[in-house]
Write a protein that binds this DNA or RNA. Structure first.
Length: 383
DNA sequence: CTGTTCAGTTGTGGCATTCCGTTTT
DNA sequence: AAAAACGGAATGCCACAACTGAACA
């Protein structure tokens, strides 16, 4: 783990606070793992989350530039910072913010999405929004270390800073970060930008530096071509893993794998999907929410299988796969109360009001001629 | 690789209808 | 206790510009 000098300041001149990695306590933490409740640098993140299949499913996000203790979910390209929902609310609802000459409420902000698995440097470049920075350039551009490259400490954020937003709301989004004092919802975040680029905040330089270190140490990097071969980021549904390894005794028989494949993010797995305790406590409400939003949470489980899944992964499997399931249970028992309260608070602050995606369509709809409330054909008006 | 074309899909608001829980008879 | 009346919420419908993505030059 390389020791990391702290970045002096971010592009807007405000000094960066020290936020050491919870794992090595040396490097600057750039990511936040909600399942582990930990701040990690890129190197430690890879180390921690490549240890077994379950850990690769933890959802990680950029660390909030505001509070340094929550996963960022909003990127403000105007201020070039990433914020958690609470910090975003605070920043962009202040009437007298001096972060920029423009009104904070009009800042160009976009939702951020976390990532799972054990992505290669190539994937990280894409995930973190450095798609334009070639891997070769990452390795060869020594001047980048002084921040003199286009991704260095310059003030300009070109148009590649447009984040590809998630097309769904994961269950993570139902959980409010615990480190803040309130649970305000982020307001006014423009949905669904088209460009497939990402965002990085105040710690951009440190991000580049750690990516470079990662690329140097990555054995899969082909230095000649700058091609970084993906390491094992293959997704292996845990259901299948458990059943294939334990098909002799689990009683969870299956011949149709497609019926039982489960895609889910780590938090869903840790907090909800695999923990009957929490589900029971939260009650049918949460459970039905999760099922109703199956497509949003990427949880694809036939309803009739849910019970089977739960029972097949309880006591028996924890004995067969102690490394996997004991870890899950520890997390659940420690964080159950927190998760519950977070969920309840989050639910209270849900926004049910209608959200207009395209103002132009609204304007047109309002101005259209109607017959009994329905849009009328233009040619009918001539009659 | 870039730009253009084109077919298919999406989203927009007001009214009517349906559904369902509550109150009244 | 049962039926009727009431009222609020949810849903569907409509046309078409805007959007999306594939195919092609």
């Amino acid at each position: 783990m390389p020791d990391s000098p702290l970045p002096a300041e971010h592009s807007h001149g405000s000094p960066l606070r020290r936020r050491p990695c919870d794992f090595c306590n040396k490097s600057t933490a750039l990511l936040y793992c909600r399942a582990d409740n930990a701040k990690l640098c890129l190197s430690c993140d890879r180390e921690v989350h490549s240890t077994n299949q379950l850990f690769t499913k933890h959802t990680r996000s950029l660390l909030c530039d505001g509070c340094d203790s929550s996963p960022a979910s909003i990127f403000c390209s105007t201020d070039a910072v990433v914020h958690c929902q609470n910090c975003d609310w605070e920043t962009h609802n202040k009437s007298n913010s001096n972060s920029n000459s423009s009104s904070p409420a009009t800042h160009d902000r976009r939702p951020l999405e976390g990532f799972t698995g054990c992505p290669s440097v190539t994937d990280l470049l894409s995930i973190l929004g450095f798609e334009d920075l070639s891997k070769k350039g990452l390795l060869l551009c020594g001047s980048c270390e002084e921040g003199s490259d286009s991704y260095g400490s310059g003030d300009k954020f070109p148009d590649y800073l447009v984040w590809d937003t998630p097309s769904f709301v994961s269950l993570d989004d139902l959980i409010v970060s615990s480190g803040s004092e309130h649970n305000y919802q982020a307001m006014g975040v423009p949905p669904l930008p088209k460009n497939r680029n990402a965002a990085f905040g105040a710690y951009k330089d440190e991000l580049v530096r750690q990516l470079r270190e990662l690329a140097k140490s990555d054995p899969n990097v082909d230095g000649d071509e700058g091609i970084i071969k993906p390491i094992n980021d293959e997704f292996q549904p845990i259901i299948n893993m458990a059943t294939t390894q334990n098909n002799r005794s689990s009683g969870f028989e299956h011949n149709k794998l497609e019926e039982q494949q489960v895609a889910y993010s780590s938090n869903e797995a840790n907090t909800f999907q695999w923990c009957p305790d929490v589900c029971d406590a939260v009650g049918q409400d949460l459970y039905s929410d999760q099922l109703h939003n199956a497509t949003e949470t990427q949880c694809i489980v036939p309803v009739e299988k849910i019970d089977t899944v739960h029972h097949s992964i309880t006591a028996e499997n924890t004995q067969v796969f102690p490394n996997i399931f004991v870890g899950v249970r520890e997390i659940n028992s420690q964080e159950r109360e927190t998760a519950l309260s977070r969920y309840k608070e989050k639910k209270k602050s849900r926004r049910y009001d209608k959200h207009i995606r395209y103002e132009s369509r609204k304007v047109r709809a309002e101005s259209r001629i109607r017959i009994r409330g329905r849009f009328a054909k233009m040619d009918r008006l001539d009659v």
